[in-house]
C-alpha cells in the first residue's frame, strides 16, 4: 500500500469531474421536484442520455453534438413520464420505476454496436492565465466546458427559483397545485416543462459519463449515479447550492475509493466500491430527520377535472 502515490491536486481535480454528472442530474431533478413531481426515472434518463450522446458523438465525430443529442434524448424519454403522470394520472413512483427499467432496456438495445468503440476526444481548453495559478489552476480552471456549464446551471437555477417570477410560479405549483390552479397557472404545462428540464439535465449528466469521464460505452454504466442524484436532492433539502456541496461530497467519496483501490489499501476492492452507496444511505438517514423542506405537493397527482 502506498498512499503517497495519491496526488491531492489530481484527486481534487478528478473530484470535480466525478461530481459533474451528479450535479447535472441532481439539479435537473431538483427543478422537477420543486414543481411537485417526483421522477424516480433519473437513472433511466441518464443511461439513455449516455448512449444517445455516445452514438451521436461517434457517428458525427462531434462530442458537442453528442451532448446536445443526450439532452434531447433525456428530455424525450422524460416526456413519456410526463404523459404518464400528468395526462394519464399514473402513480409517480411506479411511473418513475417504469422509466428506469425502460431506459435501461432502450440504452442496451441502442448501445449494441458501440461496445469497445472509442468516442471522439472532448476539447479541453485551458483557460489562459487562470489555469496557470499554482494548485488552484489545475484543480478548478483546467476542465472541459461542461464542468463550468454545470456550475452556471446551478447558479441559474438558484437565481431563477429565488428571484424570478417564473421561479415563484414553479414553487407555487410544487407547494400547492390547487392554489396555483385557482390563480390561473397552467399546473400541468409547468410540470411537463419541469420534467423535461430534469430529463435534459439527466441526459447531459449521463453523456458526461460516457463521453468524458470514462469515456466508453458499457451496459448499465451509470451504475446507480441517477439514484444517488435523487438522494442528493433530499440531502440538499431541495436547495441548489447544497446540491453542489453534496455532489462534491459524493464525487469525493467515489474518487477517493478509486484512488484507494489503485493505491492497494488492505480493504478488498468490493468493499471500497460499496462505500458511495453506504454513504448515500448514511447521509439519507442524517438528513431525513428534517422533512419540512420538501415541496408540499411532491409526488401528488393533479387533476383539474372538477
Amino acid at each position: 500500500m502506498d498512499l503517497s502515490s495519491i496526488n491531492p491536486i489530481l484527486l481534487l481535480a478528478s473530484l470535480i469531474v466525478a461530481a459533474t454528472p451528479l450535479l447535472l442530474a441532481a439539479i435537473g431533478e431538483l427543478v422537477t421536484e420543486r414543481a411537485g413531481v417526483l421522477n424516480l426515472g433519473v437513472e433511466g434518463m441518464m443511461i439513455t442520455g449516455a448512449i444517445c450522446g455516445f452514438a451521436i458523438a461517434v457517428n458525427t465525430g462531434s462530442p458537442v453534438l453528442g451532448l446536445l443529442a443526450a439532452a434531447i434524448g433525456g428530455a424525450v424519454l422524460s416526456l413519456l413520464f410526463a404523459i404518464l403522470t400528468q395526462f394519464a394520472l399514473a402513480n409517480q413512483v411506479a411511473s418513475g420505476l417504469a422509466l428506469t427499467l425502460f431506459g435501461l432496456g432502450l440504452s442496451s438495445l441502442i448501445g449494441q454496436g458501440y461496445q469497445g468503440v472509442k468516442p471522439p476526444a472532448f476539447p479541453k481548453p485551458e483557460i489562459p492565465l487562470l489555469s496557470d495559478i499554482p494548485v488552484l489552476g489545475p484543480i478548478v480552471f483546467s476542465h472541459d466546458f461542461v464542468v463550468y456549464l454545470a456550475f452556471f446551471l446551478t447558479l441559474g437555477v438558484w437565481a431563477m427559483l429565488k428571484y424570478s417570477r417564473a421561479g415563484l410560479i414553479l414553487r407555487a405549483v410544487g407547494e400547492n397545485h390547487d392554489a396555483a390552479h385557482a390563480l390561473g397557472y397552467k399546473v400541468v404545462r409547468i410540470r411537463v416543462l419541469a420534467i423535461m428540464f430534469g430529463g435534459a439535465c439527466a441526459g447531459l449528466g449521463g453523456a458526461y459519463i460516457s463521453l468524458i469521464r470514462v469515456p466508453q460505452w458499457t451496459e448499465g454504466m451509470t451504475s446507480g449515479v441517477g439514484w444517488i442524484a435523487l438522494a442528493l436532492v433530499v440531502f440538499a433539502s431541495w436547495k441548489p447550492w447544497r446540491v453542489m456541496l453534496g455532489a462534491g461530497l459524493f464525487g469525493g467519496v467515489s474518487v477517493l475509493q478509486l484512488n484507494l483501490q489503485a493505491a492497494g489499501v488492505a480493504i478488498p476492492v468490493e468493499y471500497l466500491a460499496m462505500s458511495p452507496y453506504l454513504i448515500t444511505i448514511l447521509v439519507l438517514v442524517i438528513m431525513s430527520a428534517d422533512r419540512s423542506r420538501a415541496p408540499a405537493s411532491l409526488g401528488k397527482g393533479f387533476h383539474a377535472g372538477t
Binding site: L84, A88, A98, F102, G105
Partner: peptide, 18 residues
C-alpha cells in the same frame, strides 16, 4: 436487450391504460 425493452414497455402501457 429488445426483450428487456419489451418488458419495460409492458409496464408503461399498463400504467397508461390504468
Amino acid at each position: 436487450a429488445a426483450i428487456q425493452l419489451f418488458q419495460g414497455m409492458l409496464l408503461f402501457f399498463l400504467l397508461t391504460v390504468d
